[in-house]
């Protein structure tokens, strides 16, 4: 049974993102930077995902979090938290590999893809609606197009897009879904 509750975690995260954007003047120390993380500035692992390059970047990611966060939090706050942590871990793991040569990265969109996959799984479980399959296919197709073109399809934020973070987020989502399925089977 889904509990009706105020999505306080989602609201808290939204306030944090907006607050960081408007209140922090020098954002550079908070952006994700593999170099600086290896040098001990480990807070960037978390803060980088909640920082945004410009207002458009912030706006779209806030809207995405508002929808997906609320949806997941209605299921369970723990699931939202798990998905967030998994997304951060997977996107971070990608960004720390030597293949990625970004100086700085920012934005929650990679992590939002983890939330998206988990939300689709939860809705599929409760509705078995074909619409979920369509949405999943559309989302994956969009990410693949972005990866192949190296550009965002619609938005044009001031930093160049890095679509591979979306792929990492989706993989993180797959892992959460897999873990939930296995755990549930064992409990059953």
């Amino acid at each position: 049974m889904i509990k009706q509750r105020l999505p306080v975690l989602t609201i808290g995260l939204l306030i944090t993102m907006v607050g960081l954007h408007w209140l922090v003047m020098d954002k550079t120390p908070l952006y994700f930077s593999a170099t600086e993380i290896w040098n001990g500035e480990t807070w960037r692992i978390i803060s980088g995902h909640f920082m945004h390059a410009d207002l458009q970047h912030l706006l779209w990611n806030c809207l995405g979090l508002a929808v997906l966060g609320t949806l997941l939090e209605h299921h369970s706050r723990a699931i939202l938290l798990t998905a967030l942590v998994a997304g951060i871990i997977f996107v971070t793991a990608l960004l720390l590999t030597p293949f990625v040569q970004l100086d700085y990265y920012c934005g929650l969109s990679g992590v939002l893809n983890t939330l998206l996959l988990v939300a689709l799984w939860l809705e599929w479980k409760s509705t078995r609606s074909g619409l979920i399959i369509l949405i999943a296919c559309g989302s994956i197709a969009k990410v693949l197009i972005e990866v192949s073109q190296g550009a965002s399809i619609v938005t044009h934020i001031s930093w160049p897009p890095y679509a591979w973070s979306h792929v990492a987020g989706l993989i993180g989502g797959l892992l959460v879904v897999g873990t939930m399925t296995v755990t549930k089977s064992k409990v059953a």
Binding site: G64, L102, D103, Y162
Partner: peptide, 15 residues
């Protein structure tokens, strides 16, 4: 090599 990524109207349309 700065990078970022954003949800966009297409993604919200899917949501």
């Amino acid at each position: 090599g700065n990078g970022g990524g954003a949800f966009d109207p297409w993604m919200l349309l899917l949501l």
